[in-house]
Simulated assay, not measured.
Amino acid sequence: MAERRSGNRLAALDGLRLLAALMVVIYHYVALARPWGHTTDTIFPTAHMAAQYGWLGVEFFFLISGFVICMSAWGCTVGEFAVSRLSRLFPAYWAGILLTVVVVKTWPEFASLHGWDTVITNLTMLQGGNDTPDVDPVYWTLFVELKFYLIMAVVMLFGVTYRNCLILCGVWTAAAALAPVLETPLVTEFAMPQYAPFFIAGIAFYLMRRHRPNAILWAIVILQLLLAQRYIDYRLATNLGKAAGDALPTWPARLIIIAAFALIGAIALGAFDRIQWKWLTTAGALTYPLYLIHLNIGMTLIHHYRDQIPAPVLVAEVTALMLATAWLIHRLIERPLGKWLRTTMRRGIDDVRQHVTPRRGHARSAAPQSPTASDTAHNDRPQPHARTFESV
């Protein structure tokens, strides 16, 4: 089955990433009481109701990530995938940590640090695995993403193919469905039952785009949409507290999830292929640094100026400032440092290959060797879509 539309950049996904990020930003700035000192229903009587569901932007991110990471991993070796991910994630992340530490240490009125050992551990992005507090609470999603990358890396060892992706979807669905009953910490940790439906559906949507939709892929998507409903009450309680979560209706969250599936499905089917607005590329580039810096820094500013600037104006100004700062991080840090990291890591991989290959071939004849079957298979793989689009 031939891949379709292989040369198109999916600009619509860039726009959806920014939409998801802004959902999370508005949720934190408008729905939560902490930066304002009291509940926000009297400050934003109408916007408050909608903003309470903005945490679903995270689920939207995971759905997009399933699509994009499957696309990025296709035709890659594990080493190439690792270089791509590390050079993409860490420059803006390190900048976000540095900026957050500076702001929190300068104005410790909203958030505080748990010690420099916490900051240093956060630099690894592995704090979620050793029970170290996050420098900024939004970093918890990064560890979820890292586990997804590890799962994809395992698939890559066997080859990212249509068949192997279907096997992944089936095995992961079973593990996520059984994890609450098995009560095995390791299974639960990697099956991620609350978030697995979004990653798995994203993978299935990408397979639709690459290999055309069919009954099996639609069945996977519908099953994940149904399984995603299971944890809406849990997510409401986690984000808003049990009392507020119990009081809120769940139907808006269900509609938002359905809308997210529908939008990614439309992209998979090519409905938005004609959308190639250049500003969407910039919008997508801002998403990751915006997500990293908006919470503790933005809420500190809101807390500091809440009695001096009208609330709607303050939210608009802080959001605009966060977007401008995200653009600066992208242009001045993320792009140049990411490029340097990619070059350095690729050079390191090449050095390893140069040292390993001669040893393996030392006892062999000096005659040219014909390509192996695995080499031929690798070279014959369809090349992925342009890898300029990356996931959060």
Rank of each mutant, 00 (worst) to 15 (best):
R4V: 11
R4A: 14
R5E: 05
N8L: 15
L10I: 09
A11F: 14
A12W: 06
L19S: 11
V25Q: 07
Y27N: 09
A31I: 03
A33F: 02
W36E: 08
H38R: 14
I43C: 04
I43H: 05
P45I: 05
H48N: 14
M49L: 15
Y53H: 12
F62L: 14
S65T: 11
F67K: 01
I69H: 00
C70Y: 01
A73Y: 00
A73D: 00
T77A: 07
V78C: 09
E80I: 05
A82S: 11
A82L: 14
A82D: 01
V83A: 13
S87C: 08
F90G: 03
F90N: 11
W94C: 08
I97W: 03
I97L: 15
L98W: 01
T100W: 06
V101W: 10
V102Y: 06
V104D: 03
K105P: 00
T106I: 11
T106P: 01
T106W: 14
W107A: 15
E109Y: 10
E109S: 15
L113G: 11
H114M: 07
D117S: 15
T118W: 01
T124I: 07
Q127Y: 02
Q127N: 11
G129S: 13
P133V: 04
W140C: 10
W140P: 10
V144Y: 08
L146T: 07
L146A: 12
L150I: 10
M156T: 01
L157T: 12
R163K: 15
R163L: 10
R163S: 13
W172P: 02
L182H: 05
L186V: 13
F190E: 04
F198D: 02
F198P: 00
I200N: 08
G202T: 01
A204N: 04
Y206D: 00
R210E: 01
H211M: 00
A215R: 14
L217H: 04
L225Q: 13
L227W: 03
A228D: 02
I232T: 14
A237N: 07
N239M: 15
K242C: 02
K242Q: 09
K242E: 10
T250F: 06
I257Q: 10
I258H: 08
A259H: 10
A259W: 06
A260T: 14
F261D: 04
L263R: 00
I264H: 00
G270F: 06
D273P: 01
I275Y: 09
W277G: 04
W277A: 15
A283S: 11
G284R: 03
L292C: 03
N296G: 04
M299V: 03
M299T: 05
L301P: 01
Q308G: 05
P312W: 08
E317A: 15
L321E: 02
L323Y: 05
T325W: 06
L332R: 12
I333R: 02
P336F: 09
K339R: 13
K339T: 10
R346S: 12
R347D: 12
I349S: 12
I349P: 01
V352E: 09
H355N: 13
G361R: 15
D375L: 15
T376I: 15
H378L: 13
D380M: 14
Q383C: 10
P384L: 03
A386G: 12
E390C: 12
